[in-house]
Design a protein around this nucleic acid. Structure first.
Lengths: 119, 119
DNA sequence: TCCTAGGGGGTAAATTTTGTCCCCTATGGC
DNA sequence: GCCATAGGGGACAAAATTTACCCCCTAGGA
């Protein structure tokens, strides 16, 4: 894990949540897990933009924060399944709202990004 | 502005919202603006962890996405006021939920961060 | 003249996050 | 032996972001 050198300003709840959901793929991971895509190889296929390396790192962080639980079946070949914990469940409303907001403002955002890349 | 080299995967709404709210201080800026702390110098005082440089950069991005509006009063010394646009208002529920969630899970998160820094 | 408030910005460094590449265990099929 | 799947991980490089450190402007007051 990377050791932070700048202490986090965590007075406010926003920063807390940012700390948990901050990774690039974490929201998607949580979303996927809720939908039943809960094994590492499935997640890799479901989120093709990310390397398994990064997904593993982010999954581990989510696990550290107690947002997801990892169940390892002692088999060969190994089988691993993630699931949302109770705490993780409480994040769902936020994720759903974020998803909805993003969809509703898709046109706006894509336009801005397109403009930006022109310069 | 920084020019991204890796294209953003924006299929899903989550990524869109991430793009808008992604900056380290953006949620705090929006929160502060809603509370009436809407002039650059006030914001700098309200968010002491960030340089005015960074705040300016992030404010500009928020403005680009049409989330806040910048009003410049043609005076000397100059006076600038930010306000949420209608689109920006629609982000408030998300921010409030994030804030609430963070507060409710403060103990958990602080514990995890403390553990992490021990290693 | 110097300091303050109020606004802004450029450049380079530091920090943090992602990505690339390679390797390991074990089983089973060809 | 070679490939595939299922899981894992480390070293290092690159990209992205944030910060540090300077600088600019105007006007007013001591």
């Amino acid at each position: 894990m990377y050791e932070k050198k700048i202490p986090l300003p965590l007075e406010c709840g926003l920063m807390m949540t940012r700390e948990v959901l901050g990774g690039k793929w974490k929201p998607n991971l949580l979303f996927a897990i809720v939908e039943g895509i809960n094994r590492p190889s499935q997640l890799q296929r479901a989120i093709p933009g990310a390397t398994k390396r990064v997904l593993n790192l982010q999954l581990r962080e989510l696990e550290e924060f107690g947002v997801i639980a990892k169940k390892i079946y002692p088999q060969l070949p190994p089988r691993v399944e993630y699931s949302l914990t109770e705490v993780g469940q409480t994040l769902l409303p936020i994720l759903l709202q974020m998803n909805t907001w993003g969809e509703q403002n898709r046109t706006l955002i894509e336009t801005v990004i397109a403009e930006r890349s022109k310069r």
